[in-house]
Design a protein around this nucleic acid. Structure first.
Lengths: 250, 250
DNA sequence: GTTTGACCTTGTCGTAGCGTCAACGTTTCT
DNA sequence: AGAAACGTTGACGCTACGACAAGGTCAAAC
């Protein structure tokens, strides 16, 4: 038998056969005078064994170990481990498909509706439609959600939750829209002070004090600084005025 | 933010961040005077999006397409296709685990008990314990099973089935043992002719005529030749005598 | 006699998603 | 000031082969 016949017999490519030679999975057979490899039936038997194990999902290295060690002990352990590995993969796939289904069920197809727990409610209810500012807010909240510990997660979602309640939602949405308008505005625009005032009135006390406290905290202050760097000039000015008002409110 | 902070924030390695730059998944940020990359919050947001999509199982190429195309149409299609792909993987894993379970359930852990249908019964009942010859026979039968078409499969299993029937099994086993003994024997050993005679008596008529017919057929004759090359000198002699007896029996 | 086509040979590059050096410069802590 | 911990680019390694390239060999067709 030459290599093509062997390969066709077992259902692999000749490249695969040579690769198995290279890896030592299949012994190199004798050569004919012209240099061709000449295979015998035992080679086909070994090759078929290798393929059966490979199709079960064993790596070629594992297969070589099994073939050389040869006595059942090794094989049994490897197979058990493989089964456990496959079980893990199965669970992972199920989890992924669940998140996928959740994503696809969401009509707006926002890729961040995959978070869990109470933050999910906030993200679900935060109005993202059309508002660049709200969209970015959502992303940042999602980022914080994955980056922060469980404690910070709950406190954060508690802080934001009032803004998403049915009574407050329309206002929240309106404020987002006005923030969007300030994207290209001048810092001296009269709408800036207007918005800061309305925003200060809209924010609940807990959020206001949390914000004021954040400025002086090293960790959260860092975050706030980074956040403010994403703002346009007018938006930043509104934020500055807002902070002044919140401090006076005490 | 420098690269380490960004990476820790999102939960990846700095190598990953740089790799995403290389692939164009994440824009290269501005550099500081010392050449360090300086990240802003938006970069973290984008990176987190990439990670969420990657953890769903999208390839980085697909993610780049989704990010650049950006409008939901693309994303939806990709996710649907991904889900289908995951479904296929799930089925594949289930199938593999089933075969694994079958393997592990088999106390002897023979890696060839993974075949299906009627050949499985033959393989199950063929005595493999201890006999090198029978073991090899099993492997060859398994090889034929996977290589042959469905028609040949059934005819083959029909041919072998009588040898595994409870009445005949002890004899079959004994003959295998005697074949093993001939591995290192001389072709002139008196046991050779003995065994050939008993074997001829043991083989059912159908198998005998099939064997005789095989010799003249191009295809099966090829197989027979390859098989006989695996025999030791004494075993080959027994086979030769057997064929003569079978032909005389007509 | 030669040309075609189907084989065979070795060798090298490419794949996906980074991990892991190497060899070097910068910042920061002590 | 020296060490530790960062940053930079560049290159190789991993899996299990596929897909070339650049040839040599062999049978059949012209």
């Amino acid at each position: 038998m030459r290599i093509g016949e062997l390969a066709a017999l077992v259902g692999v490519s000749t490249r695969t056969v040579r690769h198995y030679h290279y890896l030592g999975l299949l012994p190199e057979p004798d050569r004919l005078a012209n240099g061709y490899r000449e295979y015998r039936l035992r080679d086909a038997v070994v090759l078929a064994r290798v393929r059966r194990l490979a199709e079960l999902g064993l790596s070629l290295d594992e297969i070589r170990d099994v073939l050389t060690d040869d006595q059942g002990r090794e094989l049994r352990d490897v197979l058990l481990e493989l089964d456990a590995d496959l079980a893990r993969q199965q669970e992972a796939i199920v989890a992924r498909r669940q998140r996928l289904a959740a994503l696809l069920a969401d009509a707006e197809l926002r890729p961040d509706s995959t978070v869990s727990s109470d933050m999910a409610a906030v993200l679900r209810d935060l109005p993202a439609a059309g508002s660049k500012f709200a969209e970015f807010d959502r992303e940042v909240l999602t980022l914080i959600h994955t980056a922060a510990g469980p404690a910070d997660r709950t406190s954060f979602s508690a802080l934001f939750h009032p803004l998403t309640e049915p009574r407050a939602l329309a206002q929240t949405q309106a404020i987002y829209a006005r923030l969007d308008e300030l994207a290209d505005a001048d810092p001296g625009d009269p709408r800036v002070a207007d918005l800061a005032g309305d925003l200060a009135a809209h924010l609940p006390d807990e959020m206001a004090s949390a914000l004021v406290a954040s400025v002086d905290d090293a960790e959260t202050g860092h975050w706030l600084k980074m956040l403010s760097q994403e703002l346009s000039a007018a938006q930043y000015e509104a934020f500055r005025l807002l902070m002044i008002m919140l401090k006076e409110r005490r």
